[in-house]
Design a binder for these strands. Sequence first.
DNA 1: TCATATATTTACGTATACATTATAAAATTA
DNA 2: TAATTTTATAATGTATACGTAAATATATGA
Lengths: 221, 221
Amino acid sequence: MSKGKSNTQQALSVLKELIVDNRLASGSNHLESELAEMLGMSRTPVREATLILEAQGLIEVKPRHGIRILSLSPKDMSEIYDILTELESLSAELAANMKYSEADFLVAENAIEKMDKALAEDDLESWAVADELFHSELVRLGNNGRIANIFTMYSDQVRRARKLTLNLRPKPTKSNDDHRNVLKAIRDGKAGEARILHRAHRIQAKKVLIELLEQYGFHNV
Amino acid sequence: MSKGKSNTQQALSVLKELIVDNRLASGSNHLESELAEMLGMSRTPVREATLILEAQGLIEVKPRHGIRILSLSPKDMSEIYDILTELESLSAELAANMKYSEADFLVAENAIEKMDKALAEDDLESWAVADELFHSELVRLGNNGRIANIFTMYSDQVRRARKLTLNLRPKPTKSNDDHRNVLKAIRDGKAGEARILHRAHRIQAKKVLIELLEQYGFHNV
DNA sequence: TCATATATTTACGTATACATTATAAAATTA
DNA sequence: TAATTTTATAATGTATACGTAAATATATGA
């Protein structure tokens, strides 16, 4: 029945999920004891989990005000997207310079196909999942573990906002072409081109997201 | 008598300093109780500090083998330098696009002067300090707080290796020209140029460092 | 002697008790 | 009544106790 995970690790993953899914609302405050009771454990592992979550930028621990779930302003989103843009583009470049075989691109190919299918079925939820998979796969192919960590960290932080705007934006048909072109450049070993293509793709995505957030008045997501 | 800092925060900063200065040798293992005794506090705050240090990538917590101070291989250094290259170059670009006044460049100017003086006096220690100050100032001018966090994190990790190679490398005279040119481009609002110049500067620095590490057989710093 | 099983030790994970300190409440005074 | 001081409350920070599980040492048998 037990899975060997420590309570701290459990608290960490459960809390992260609650935050990312917005079930612990952004901007809300929570006491250690409250979370401990919710999770059915003592304060100690909860406290340890919150310290890690703070280091990862998801929450802020304010001594007498509880744990605050951080919300993201358009400026925050802009910061994060700028970082992801650079690091993913670098990953594309690095990936193109590695000598990969066809088999290594299977997951990325698959992700693109899933996006096609999801678009055809107007299933934006699935599209978003596949889109994140593609980006994460790109980062994996770049073979820089620290970039992968940063990517995961910020993807978590940004998921709330992306979900919020998913149905407000035009159908991301161009995205799919972009992905295909980036992957082709990587396959062909054209590092500079892969980098430039992906960078343009990301810059466009940022523009769309920020404009939507401001247009719809989401000043703190 | 007390300074208001919690024991956890104290443990965090003391441990970080010990690690960065290599007084806790990279690759070495330490028990919670050992560190607690060394710091004159109970295991609890030490444990909390180690969780944060682990999240920051300085150590690895291995259940029955103690806390391991992570060492850096050339591959690790390469990963970190690649990330810093991208994010600093972006910062240069962003800084050039901000409307700064002369006063905002004082610290950066000062850092450059310090580097000149240090070079003239053959004081490489001081040069390294001023060099890091310039880069950190560049990041600050970029006005992306998350990049600043990442920069601090990886600068800490890399300091050991930089110190080690400081006296092995040729005098960094060209560095100073580079810095001046980057700052001028930022001042003139030439974003693309600032980016490209700084990128080239960073790529060169990476090349020098990695070659030195491999040449001298520092496979785990 | 070597392999396997058993016992012991020890470090960690967690709960809990307690000290500390910031906030809120109450009381006092102008 | 409003401001200020005092008291009380409550949440955090820290130490400690203890159960658990992993690693080591010991013992047993082939």
